[in-house]
Each structure stands twice: as C-alpha cells, then as structure tokens.
Computed example of a mutant assay.
Amino acid sequence: MERFDRQITMRALRHEFLRQRLFGAAMIEDSAIFRDANVLNIFCGDGGVAMLAIQAGARHVLAIDTVTNANMARRVIRKNGMLDRISVMGIDVRQLDLSGLRYDVLLCAWMDDMAIFQGKLSDLIVARDRFIRPGGIIYPYMIRISACAIEDGKAWEATNKWINANIGFRYLHMRELLRPVLDYLKPEQIVTSFSKIADFNLYTITLEQLNRAAFFSMVTIQEAPVHSICTSLESLVMRPGGPVALNFNHFTPDYRHTIFYLGVQLNACPGSVIVGKLTELFDWSMTRQMLKWDYEYNGRNGKFVGSGNYTVR
C-alpha cells in the first residue's frame, strides 16, 4: 500500500531525476570501470541508468526488467538514439539464458526502497553468479541500511482505519501480511538517532545468507510519540581511497523512505532507548521475503515490548 497525494506524479519524476543525477555523477567519476565494458543492468527502470553507463564509456549494455518497465525503457532509449548500443529485455533474471556470455560490470542503481532491495536481492545474487565474469565489477558494490524511529501519527491513523475497513476487527492477525509503505519524510519527524542495521557486500553475500538477523539500538532525541521505524538505504562504491557512499540529502522532498508501522504508539522521552532485532526470512516456495521487527522500549516512563511482521515480495 503506497500513499499518494496530489503531487505524486511530479514527485515520482523528480525522484527518478534525483536517482539518475546521483548515479550519473558517480558513474562519470568512475568512468574507468565502464570504459569499453559490457554492462548488465538489472532492474533498469526507464532505461536512464543504462544510458548513463553508455555516457560513462560502456561498449554495450543489456538492460533487463519486467515487461512493462522494459517496454518503457525501450521507448526512452529509442528516443535518445541509443538502441544500437543498449539491448532491452523484459524477463525475470532467473529465466535469462545468455548461452554462457559473461559481462564485465553488473549495474543496479539502488537508492531508496529498502523493501524492494530486500525482495530483489536474491535476483541480484543469481545475476552475479551466472552472468558476471571472474574479476567483474558490481556497481555499487555495497548497500548500507540504517533505521530510526519516527513520529507519523496522521499516517498511522489512516493506515489503521484502512486495515479495519478492509480486513476487519476479526482478522487482525492478517496485519502480518501488510507491506511496508513508501513515503516522504520530514526531518522534524525523526524521534531517535539513526542505527546501522546491516551492510550487504554484493560480491560475497549468498542465497543462504538471506535468512539472517541484525540488531539495532536507537536513542530518543526528542519527546514525541513513535509510530514507525523508518529505513534509509545508501549505495557504496569502491574508490582508490576506499569505500565511498553516494551521499545526498535523505530528507530532500523527493527522497522516499521505507516505513514500517509498529501498530502501536510509543510515547518516547529524551534519552530513552529502543533496542531490537530485524530478522529476514526468505520463503523459497512463494519467492517472497518476510521481515520481522522485534523491539523493546526502555524509558523513564516505562517499558514496552513489541514486534511486527511484513511481507516484502
């Protein structure tokens, strides 16, 4: 479920522009990686990042995504006169057969959506193992996920009204089937410090490691009700001096965050601590990722223990 407002179309366009500007600048700076390379761009979206790879010096790009996105990307790429150097396919990466062909660079422009990243991570692992040559480059090579607790009362009330109207009080156990929400965030909504949840090294992570647990600790920085856990996602690239995060303002109006509603309201006071564990469970039979948040609030106004389950894919 994704909340929309009257400006959602324009914001989505600005968001895509932000993503392409961010990765475009980084790819030009890292043009030595792309120069004369054959690039596999998975989850290519509208094709903008594939075209940026060509501008950075790539010899050829194979861009793949869903059929709908691939058709859109093909139109955009044709309009920009690059179809001779970019091939587009609408196919699941697991169904892709390249007859032994291996690529120099695996490109995937992750930016904001922690939920989609988690759900698609298994596809990236498959693409890496099947289609990237030994010594090939993954760009970006690492994804860092951080989280904080936020005040989001109006949205929290709207979400609960929707649950009760569409599911009903008798079926509240179905809350665990709720998906996290993509939405925009204002700095004043932040109630706690940010806590790093996990670093995903895309060179080394395996399918078996998709079932994992990560621990977090957040310190309350203002007195406010807490309704949700908000995650942010950073892409890291390797430079001669070491890893570099593709930095930008997470709280620009065009940057979307993945928000997990707790189902309760925590009345936090400054100096309180929220600790917990994020557990990831991948259901291979249904090809979906389940995320479970277990958390404990400790403050001078009391203690609370809770949890929430979310379907990612």
Rank of each mutant, 00 (worst) to 15 (best):
A155W: 09
S235L: 01
R11H: 11
L233Y: 05
R3I: 12
K79P: 04
Y141Q: 15
I42Y: 02
R170Q: 13
T287F: 13
I64M: 01
D84K: 10
E16S: 12
V61H: 00
L177V: 04
L172F: 08
P225L: 02
T68A: 11
P240E: 07
N164Q: 09
R59Y: 09
L107G: 02
A127F: 03
G48W: 06
I33Q: 14
N298I: 12
R19D: 07
I116Y: 13
F169I: 01
V105E: 00
A37N: 03
R6H: 14
D97S: 15
V39K: 05
P240S: 08
D183F: 09
M114C: 09
L266R: 03
F304V: 13
K79D: 12
K79S: 13
D294P: 05
R85N: 13
M114A: 15
F282M: 11
N41M: 06
F131G: 01
I167F: 03
M1Q: 10
A70Y: 05
V264T: 10
M174D: 03
D294R: 06
A25V: 11
Q222A: 14
T287S: 13
A50W: 00
Y171Q: 07
L185Y: 03
L101M: 14
N38S: 12
F17L: 11
D283E: 06
T68D: 12
Q265P: 03
H60Y: 14
N164H: 10
L207T: 10
M111A: 03
H250M: 15
S307K: 14
A165V: 14
Q95W: 01
P240C: 12
P180G: 08
H173W: 11
G81Q: 05
Q209V: 12
I132P: 00
Y139C: 03
M72H: 15
E208S: 04
L291T: 05
T220P: 02
F131S: 01
I143M: 08
V226S: 01
R75Q: 11
A70I: 05
P134K: 12
M174P: 00
P253F: 05
K79L: 10
F17C: 04
L178C: 07
G276L: 12
D113E: 06
N69T: 03
L236I: 08
A50Y: 06
I33A: 06
M10K: 10
G263L: 07
G168Q: 00
W110Q: 04
G306S: 02
Y139S: 05
F260Q: 04
A198G: 04
T311V: 15
T287Q: 15
N301S: 05
Y261P: 01
M238E: 08
N211W: 07
N160Q: 15
L18K: 13
D294S: 14
M82V: 06
L202E: 01
D92R: 11
L182Y: 08
A149D: 01
S193C: 00
V39W: 04
H60D: 08
A213F: 06
A32H: 15
T258P: 00
R175S: 04
L177R: 09
R11P: 02
F131H: 05
F117V: 14
G136P: 01
L207G: 09
T204Q: 12
Y171D: 04
L40K: 01
G241V: 06
L281I: 15
D30W: 01
E280S: 13
I229F: 15
Q55R: 11
G263D: 02
S195R: 03
N249V: 06
T206I: 09
